[in-house]
């Protein structure tokens, strides 16, 4: 969200807040105009909309990813590629790489270094094909006053000429990939689960959109596509993973996957790569020699809301 846009609207907080959340009154009104015709179509309309309006029969009967055979996965991937090609006019890679052996991904964020520039937020949006309208952003950078760590007094609505601001520090928050994750526990259809390498994923084609997981997550790690996601064709990232950044549909939940499409190929998540001060660290918790393991062993680390026993694999630390 650019500064000018915010100022134009005169509603800084509200505008930012519509990120992936809800409609602005204007949007709704506009849509109401377009669709007034639809209003009295009746029961047949409901059925037709439910069955055919948004999906093909193959999509309708598509199985949960974890129950698919190899052949079914291949077929589904081909179908998705064709769909995306039609929608964005580009050839997509829809990866289905499985977890790497003896790997448990973990993350650490250096609070001493973070300057609150939000580059990670924007890099994440681009890498992970988040909807631009309505906006969804997986990472929220919270600003705190020095000497305070009270979430209720923090804010994401800061827009200075220059960061970092005097007298403040920043805590970026995204899905914490909890080892004891309440979100996967509550899902009534197992549309979301923890992979063997520790990544908490969602099968977008299996989610029924009940939003129970969003109520259960203590970190605002989950976002809902309240409308058909909009990604400009020239901005869309074609290197995707089935359980990660492939384009989503409306009325399903999505979340940070540690950039599963990258990390399963040995690359770093986009937010780690883009951070200009190197505040973000990522690696294999099972390897005692990895950078992440060394940080946990040698630095002062903590995890958010540890009293809830969610056991995040996302650590915060102080480098000095």
């Amino acid at each position: 969200m650019s500064k000018e846009e915010l100022e134009k609207s005169g509603r800084i907080s509200e505008l930012q807040d519509t990120r992936g959340s809800g409609p602005t009154p204007d949007e709704v009104e506009q849509k109401e105009l377009i669709d007034r015709r639809m209003f009295f179509q009746g029961a047949a309309g409901v059925l037709a909309t439910m069955m055919l309006g948004s999906c093909s029969w193959q999509e309708f009967f598509q199985n949960n990813f974890r129950r698919m055979t190899k052949g079914e996965i291949e077929q589904t991937v081909e179908r998705l590629k064709a769909e995306y090609k039609q929608k964005y006019g580009k050839d997509f890679v829809v990866g289905t790489e499985g977890p790497i052996d003896a790997t448990l991904f973990g993350y650490a964020l250096d609070l001493q270094r973070c300057i609150g520039c939000r580059r990670c937020v924007y890099a994440c949006v681009e890498e992970n094909n988040q909807s631009r309208d309505p906006q969804i952003q997986y990472i929220r950078v919270l600003r705190f006053k020095d000497g305070e760590m009270d979430l209720e007094h923090s804010t994401i609505y800061y827009d200075p000429e220059e960061v970092p601001e005097k007298g403040h520090y920043y805590i970026p928050v995204q899905c914490q990939h909890c080892a004891n994750s309440p979100c996967t526990k509550v899902c009534p259809v197992q549309a979301t689960w923890t992979e063997p390498d520790g990544i908490v994923v969602v099968d977008y084609n299996w989610c029924i959109g009940c939003r129970y997981c969003m109520a259960a997550c203590p970190y605002m790690g989950r976002w809902f596509n309240f409308a058909e996601p909009v990604i400009p064709a020239d901005k869309v990232n074609v290197n995707t993973h089935y359980l990660g950044n492939r384009p989503r549909m409306r009325n399903v939940v999505e979340k940070c996957t540690f950039c599963i499409q990258r990390v399963r190929k040995g690359r770093y998540p986009a937010c780690v790569e883009v951070c200009p001060v190197g505040a973000r660290k990522f690696g294999n918790l099972l390897d005692p020699e990895s950078e992440i393991s060394r940080i946990i062993q040698t630095k002062r680390v903590f995890r958010l809301k540890s009293e809830l026993n969610t056991q995040p694999k996302f650590y915060y630390f102080f480098s000095i």
Binding site: D35, M38, F40, V46, G53
Partner: peptide, 27 residues
Amino acid sequence: IAIGIGAYVKQMRLGLIVTGMTSYVSW
């Protein structure tokens, strides 16, 4: 009931964006 169904059809077509719910207040 007819009015309700009409409203529901619209919700189905456009998504839950026609409701007041957000990622903050999701129910």
